[in-house]
Amino acid sequence: MTIELILDGKRTALEILPGQNLLQALRGASRFSVKLGCETGDCGSCTVLLDGEPVNSCVVAAARAAGRSVTTLEGLLGDPLMQRLQRELVDKGAVQCGYCSPGMLISLYALLKQDEAPTDRDVREALSGNLCRCTGYVKPVEAALAVAATLGGAS
């Protein structure tokens, strides 16, 4: 079946299978920042924004995205907030293997869009769906709080 959606800001037609998940559909559309890690909605490597909210694209049916807006990291590369998050993750040493980084970035972006003054706990809640086996989360959390501090709402 074919669905139409707004993919990274552009009206796009995607050829999908009825039971396919959004993760596979997006990788099929060359959105390689969307990573496969578990396909059970637990690891968050495939996190994208669906109508602005972070979702695990592996447990969202691709067909469900019809008529909606889907944003991947590829679609946010020019976004100033995303660029700050990327810079801070890189500078703080929060990128080790980097496989979970795109998903983490999407989750943190969604958090900071909704809350400019998150606490350590808020950041951890926002990252609760992004499993990282390399960092122990210390540096990703540090990086997120550092970006939040520049947004003027440090807490």
Partner: peptide
């Protein structure tokens, strides 16, 4: 603490892994 050599491309989600 030099910039990790691959960190920027990884943080950009570039297609650098096996399946990409």
């Amino acid at each position: 603490n030099v910039t990790k050599i691959d960190a920027v491309k990884l943080a950009r989600g570039e297609p650098v892994f096996t399946d990409d």
